[in-house]
Nucleic acid binder design. Structure first.
Lengths: 187, 187
DNA sequence: GGAAGTACTTTACATATGATAAATAATCAA
DNA sequence: TTGATTATTTATCATATGTAAAGTACTTCC
């Protein structure tokens, strides 16, 4: 659990009791490459922290697989739109390498908020940061060409290109795989 | 302030003390059509609630005016990416009609979080909901044609078309004004 | 009420990206 | 290793949206 608490410390330092409370509602999950953590169509009740591996959130639009986001080591991944609304999620989380994750039960986590304001604050700060990332991404999608977005991705997250199949990168960038291949061809 | 507290009640009901504390750090602002609430280039330290009027967040990309979002009566508007990071904002908030707003000082608000966990929770819930909206918007931008996005906007927020110049709507939809005009021409 | 500035539309042409299909390359399982 | 599956690239053609320029219609303000 130590890597998880190190991650937390970047946002808000917890007391020993706070850490213990989170440890109690969390468990380590090992999972094989290319498998789904949770299926589409259920309400999301888990926040995952990635100890080792890569994961993506994806969904289907007209039978086409669309990657919404990627997450790597020492980051969390969750289907926020279901977690916060309680609605069933049209999305799934899939692991792209043999991975080791820490699964935090969100139902129990949200209950801890009453007893531990420090935990509520911690997750508030984590999700505020994620929210800012999402706002920036809208700007990227809306006002940069596919080529600019691809180059920005190489620069900011070169790991993605190394560890993730290009077909997933394409839909993440909002283009077809053919288009991505064309962009990569230009040098 | 009553309209503000009614808005809050949709997320978390505050105690009288909590309401009073917020009232003390808030003030009513009346502002004329087409003026900026705050200039580009400063750190955002205000969350606005719109009592009457319309506002938009905008910025310049290569000298072109881009609208990031609109907000109408009984909603809040804030440059979240600056509010949460403390960085200066490249964005400005502009009012598109003679408007009446409630300005909440965010520096003082964040200080209240320690004393009033109920206020911290309130704003956590408000921004969680906004975050979910942003996630949904990415999907809209990325995987729907401009025409689909325009029609979705008419359906979800017909007010926008009535109260906001089309040039602002165009950049909000991620297209040029010419393109929007073309789409509107098709019937 | 008229002039000046804004907002909106229309046209013509350029271009980035999509769709489809086929070829090649890489990965995986027996 | 070999064959089968999956991933990636390449080519061709279609189309949505962008750019530029000009025209029309509104607003605003003196």
């Amino acid at each position: 659990m130590e890597s998880l608490f190190n991650f937390f410390n970047k946002y808000n330092t917890l007391s020993k009791e706070g850490e213990k409370a989170i440890a109690e509602i969390s468990k380590i999950v090992e999972i094989k490459k290319n498998t789904d953590l949770q299926p589409i169509g259920h309400t999301c009740k888990t926040i995952y922290f990635i100890k080792k591996g890569v994961a993506r959130i994806y969904y289907f639009k007209d039978d086409i697989d669309i990657t919404e986001s990627f997450a790597f080591e020492n980051n969390i991944i969750a289907r926020v739109e279901s977690l916060f609304t309680g609605k069933t999620s049209r999305k799934a989380i899939q692991v792209l390498e043999d991975s080791e994750l820490i699964a935090i039960n969100s139902t129990q986590l949200f209950k801890l908020y009453d007893k531990f304001p420090e935990i509520e604050r911690l997750f508030r700060l984590i999700f505020e940061a994620a929210y800012v990332g999402t706002i920036d991404r809208i700007e990227g999608i809306q006002f940069h060409t596919a080529e600019e977005r691809y180059k920005a991705l190489i620069k900011e997250a070169p790991d993605v290109l190394k560890r993730v199949p290009l077909k997933f990168v394409a839909s993440y960038l909002g283009i077809t795989q053919v288009s991505l291949s064309r962009i990569r061809g230009i040098r």
